[in-house]
Write a protein that binds this DNA or RNA. Structure first.
Length: 297
DNA sequence: CACCATGTTCCTTG
DNA sequence: CCAAGGAACATGGT
């Protein structure tokens, strides 16, 4: 469940449920998720602390903890959901799911961190934040910044969008969606984007992310994923029911389906070990002069 | 059995 | 030092 929009929606959901709550205890069922701390070290640092604030940076959840009484500095705890992580609040007396990795007790309720693949992390090591690029929806992410950042690389633009030090929070789904929306070939070397392409790409990134946040804020979500499928965000394929997500993604995981713009079959290829989905017609490397592409240059 | 999956880090190689 | 590519991590779906 984790790219910028999902983490943002999750943070907004959890904040009112968690702020002001005291962490009474922690249960660690998968030690690797909290490495390099041991379960005892984590408990020592967290027990009795009050959750003061919850925000997001890139794909990280940022918890501000106030240790015990008025004593001590505020400390920062990071949560990262990896590929399959979930975090949710629910009554403490409910049985734990198979892949519950860390459980914070908040009295009558628990904050559960569950992760099928255990790629997620909970850590006090905040140094990673300093390596993140600007927030794509923030004021620093200007066209001038993006152009300068892309100019230094021959790497394919699709691969660069996944570089968290370039811009924070874009993952494989929204990288694909943003490039499709901008009408830019995923193969185009970063430094070869024209000025107008850089502008379009920046705008597409922002629109794609903002729309996903808006969508995720509107629709009721299944935080604990009890429906079996991942109905939380990406693959809302519930039969019937108002299914906003069904048509939300234009290219991701749509190999062979007709492009929504031109009806060409969408293609899947691999770049940097990750799938790239794109329309070979709308996202051609060299746009056909004779064909009206609809993407202004 | 094969291949694929929303992510990051570490290790090579150039 | 940097850029780029690949494996590893762990589990499950198809």
């Amino acid at each position: 469940m984790p790219e910028l929009p999902e983490v943002e929606v999750l943070a907004r959901h959890l904040a009112p449920l968690l702020i002001g709550k005291v962490i009474h205890g922690v249960t660690v069922r998968r030690a690797k998720v909290i490495a390099p701390l041991s379960p005892l070290q984590l408990i020592r640092r967290v027990r009795g602390a009050t959750i003061q604030a919850l925000s997001r940076r890139g794909k990280y959840l940022v918890f501000q903890l106030q240790p015990l009484p008025p004593k001590g500095e505020c400390s920062t705890l990071l949560g990262h959901l990896g590929m399959t992580g979930r975090m949710y609040v629910r009554p403490a007396d409910r049985p734990l799911p198979r892949h519950a990795a860390v459980i914070f007790s908040l009295g009558r309720q628990n904050l559960v961190f569950e992760d099928q693949r255990y790629f997620g992390r909970i850590t006090f090591a905040t140094a990673v934040l300093r390596r993140l690029g600007p927030e794509p929806l923030g004021p620093e992410f200007t066209a001038a910044y993006l152009r300068a950042a892309l100019q230094r690389s021959r790497q394919a633009v699709k691969v660069k969008l996944l570089d968290q030090s370039l811009v924070a929070g874009i993952g494989n789904i929204y990288a694909n969606e943003a490039l499709f929306r901008a009408g830019i070939s995923p193969f185009l070397p970063a430094k070869e984007l024209s000025s107008s392409q850089v502008h379009r790409l920046r705008q597409s990134i922002r629109l794609v992310l903002a729309e996903a946040i808006a969508g995720g804020s509107t629709v009721p979500l299944d935080w604990a994923g009890t429906q079996g499928k991942d109905r939380l965000f990406y693959f809302g394929r519930a039969a019937g029911t108002p299914d906003y997500y069904e048509e939300r993604l234009q290219v991701y995981d749509r190999t062979g389906q007709p492009c929504g713009r031109c009806r060409h079959p969408l293609k899947r290829i691999v770049q940097g070990g990750r799938s790239t989905f794109f329309c070979p017609n709308c996202q051609a490397r060299i746009p056909h002069r004779s064909r009206a592409t609809g993407f202004k240059t």
